[in-house]
Amino acid sequence: MIALLLSLALPALAADWRATLQQAVDQAHATAPATVELAATAQVVPTRNGGLRMIDVGAPWGPVLMADRLVHGEEPPPVRQALAAALVARIDAWPEVAVGLVQEEQDPQVLATLLSGLQRLPADLALPELERALADPQAQVRIEAAAVLGRHAAGGQADQALIAALADADPQVRALAARALGRHQVATAFAPLRPLLTDRDSQVRLQALRALARIDDAATRALPERASLEADADPLVARAAAQLRP
C-alpha cells in the first residue's frame, strides 16, 4: 500500500520540482545571461583527490543552472558527478529541487554526491531520503548517507536507521553510522555500539569508542573492552582508549 501511495505521489512531486527548477532557470536567463552562458560551457577540472569539479560559475544562479544541466544534459557520469558537486552547497534555496534530484538519480556516484545537498534541508524533507539512501544497495550511497546524517542537525531522529547501519557489511558505513550516533548522543545506541569495539576494522573500533564516550563517558571508561583496546594494533585506537582511562 505504501509503495502504491509513493508511486502515485512521486510523479506529482517530480512535476512540481521540475517546474520550480524551470522557473529558476528562466529567471537566470532573464537576469544573468552571462552566468547562463558560463554555466553552459563551464569546464570540468580535476580536484586534488582525483575527483572532478565543475568550475564555479557563481551564486545564486550557479546551482540551478548546474541542476538544469544535470537534468537535461546527456553528459558522462564523471561530468554529471561534477555538476552535482557544484550545486549541493546552495541547493537548499530550492529544497524541492534537491529532493527531486535525489529521488530520480540512478547513478550511485551522482546520487552519493547529491545527498550532501540534503544537509541543510529541513528534517521532514531530508531524513526520509537519507534513511532510504542508508538502505541503498550501493555502498558509496550508504556511506554518504551515514556521513550526511552525522552532520544534519536532526540526524539523531534517524536513530533506528543508523543503529541498523551498525551491522552494515561495509566498514565505512559502520564507522560513519557510529560517528553519527555519537555526534547526536543517541542514548539508545550505547548497547548496539558496544559490540563494535571488537570490530575487525580499526576505524569502526575507533568511531565506536568515541561515540560511546560521547553518549556516556563514565560508562565507556568502565567498559572492559576499553582496557583491551589500549593494546590495539592500530595506534589511534590504542591512544583513544588510553585517553579514556577511568
Binding site: G58, A89, R90, H152
Partner: peptide, 23 residues
C-alpha cells in the same frame, strides 16, 4: 557569496552554522 560551492554569504552565516561548529 559569489561562489556556488560555499554555503556562507556572510560572517553571520558561518557563525550560525552549527554543523560547522560541532564538526
Amino acid at each position: 557569496a559569489s561562489a556556488n560551492s560555499k554555503p556562507w554569504d556572510t560572517v553571520g552565516d558561518m557563525l550560525a552554522d552549527k554543523a560547522l561548529r560541532s564538526l
